[in-house]
Amino acid sequence: MLKSIASRIGQTLIVIVGVAMLIFFLLRIVPGNAVATMMSEHADAATIARISAELGLDKPWYVQFWIYITGALHGDFGTSYALHRPVKELLLLSFPNTVKLAVLAALVAWIIGVLAGIVAAQKKNGFLDRIFMGFSLLGVSMPVFMVAMILQYTIAYKLHWLPISGGDSLKCFILPAIALGWNSAGSIARLTRSTLLEVLQEDYIDTARAKGRSQMGVIVLHALRNAMLPVLTMMALQLSSLLSGAVITETVFGINGIGRLAVDAISGRDIPLLQGTVLFTTVLVVLGNLVADCLYTVLDPRIRKEA
């Protein structure tokens, strides 16, 4: 088991290095001169050349790459062109907000999704099942920004229950978390319901009943653990969609997070900042997948054996 986890960690490192290279080259391929964009229209050629030299953009690409990679390894992503502050500092400043948002959204998605899935499976084809599955279909099919705007309009603007945007208190994160988690909650609810219904047909469920377990005991102690295996995979996969959704959510709700930083970096052609944010989120997603894999290995002894 340790061996399989070690090899997964190795793979993870390779993925991170690969992505780091990919980001670097993609950003150089994109047409348009970064400095010209920054300076807007009144910059003359001489200024552009001077600033390019200052930023090291006149050096050959392999020198730039070397600086970028060695820097990144030391946690140094350069200095933001637009904000004139080290990218690392900006990342560390926005990171807690994104984490807060993503964790809350994941909690919304997982708790609501799993619970709704269990109830729906229990009341298969009943009233609650239909209600929950209807909602989850809405969840799966509505884009994040739409949910966000509906929530802003109804809960915040019309009902004044929660702030529309901005702020740092937990209260300000509730609507964004729901908007962001809604989508995942829908797909988790559907998957939980269908795998649970499938698992409940298994012979070992009969065995558990035959030894005198109650319906609740059967579900919690025997069915869920098996049904959760595919759900867990989905949760890990959703981590990346949660983070990309965070870009939109943070923008709509005015949260100073990594996603918003990335949006600013893109519109301002702020190459170091963009490299930093993308690399940072990549590491988050890859680590999330790694954790899910390790959990999967712990939960499913059959995989432990094969490895």
Binding site: G212, S214, D300, R302
Partner: peptide, 22 residues
């Protein structure tokens, strides 16, 4: 529930699938 497994037990046909795999 207190009869099942306590006073009456049952063994099923498929030993391969009758035990919880995890």
């Amino acid at each position: 529930q207190s009869v099942r497994g306590g006073e009456i037990s049952m063994i099923f046909q498929e030993p391969m699938t009758s035990l919880n795999p995890v």
